[in-house]
Amino acid sequence: MPPLPDGAEETVAFDRAARELGLKRGEFELAVQLGEVRTVAVGAMGRRVARAELLRLAAAEGFPSALRARLRVVGTAEGAELLGISQGRFTRLARGGFFTPVRFYVNRYRAVVWLYPAAELGAFAGREPALLTGRIPAGLRATLDEGEDQRAAGWRRRRVEQLLARTDNPWERAAVWCAPLAPAELDAVVTDPAERACLRELMPRLAPVPAGTGPAAEVTAALVTADDPAEIRRCRAALETCVRDAREARPIQPPVPRSTEVAEAPGSEPAPPPARPRRLPLWHRLVRGRRSATDGPTTPYRGRKSPSCTTETSSRPARS
């Protein structure tokens, strides 16, 4: 590796950082999402981990077991056992929004399996011991009986917050708010075609959608899209604000025409067509350097495929 310029910070790629921290790939991605491992943007190399961050984590008390404990995730059965309650009560509390999933996958029976940070469940038990015993409060019981389920909305909110925390670029922040909205909602809020194209190129996926049209793909596509009117209004309002701020900070220029007609004098040689200026992709003109795939090495983008977008397909159940 060449010597670093004065004042530059040594960084390492995600794969190497995971090895040095003794984490599996999925554990490392979760650590980045939860903010346990902080990343930095390094120009064309995308997001990386500073050497100083690795030293900080390695020097922490209880490393690496303490770090792994903070990254432990559990499903309903294990979570209920951890809290000392029945699986039914655990599910009702989760549906009521008392704790928020951090990941999910769709099993072979097309059922959604939600995963929760074990550390957060332990904190909930210490904070709300009354909800672990006795009858469920009447108000909560009534809303649950009506079909209330905040797990998907809570997961989407968590993912949006995670993605927003990783960028200060105004157009990238606007694109994050597009992620949970259906395409028609984006079209309704952002009427300028160039701005919509920019946002679609920068838009991260909240979770990879499996390839094909199987049950896992259908369920995942539904989970990553806001469906509650209140949630849709909140995302639209945030998108409007972010787009307004982005316009003021870095207005998008209209594209240069592909060709220019040149008038020719009678009897003269035809003029050669003007050279087309080389134009970088729109996202590249707005974001310095080549963009990495949001906060982790495997998070693809929604929207049309292009050389500037990263896509990923997997035959395994989608996790977030």
Results as ranks from 00 to 15, higher is better:
L206I: 06
R205L: 13
L93M: 03
A226L: 06
Q33V: 07
P274Y: 01
E78K: 13
R16Q: 12
C242V: 03
V49M: 10
A249D: 05
E240D: 11
T294S: 09
A230G: 15
E36D: 13
G154N: 04
T313R: 04
V256K: 01
F98N: 03
R141W: 06
P117I: 10
L181M: 11
D227V: 06
D168T: 07
C235M: 14
V160P: 10
V40D: 05
R302C: 00
R304D: 07
R19C: 08
E264S: 03
A59G: 11
P251S: 07
G303H: 07
D192Y: 11
F98D: 00
P2H: 03
V189I: 13
D168P: 00
T91K: 15
V74D: 00
C309T: 14
L280Y: 00
A179R: 04
R291D: 00
D245S: 15
D245I: 12
L282N: 01
R151D: 09
A230C: 05
R166N: 09
P101D: 05
R95E: 14
C198R: 12
D145P: 01
E27A: 05
G122D: 09
R70I: 10
E29N: 14
R110S: 15
A263N: 02
R25C: 02
A152D: 07
V219Y: 05
W171T: 12
A188H: 11
P3C: 00
W171G: 08
I252N: 06
G97F: 08
G296C: 11
E128R: 14
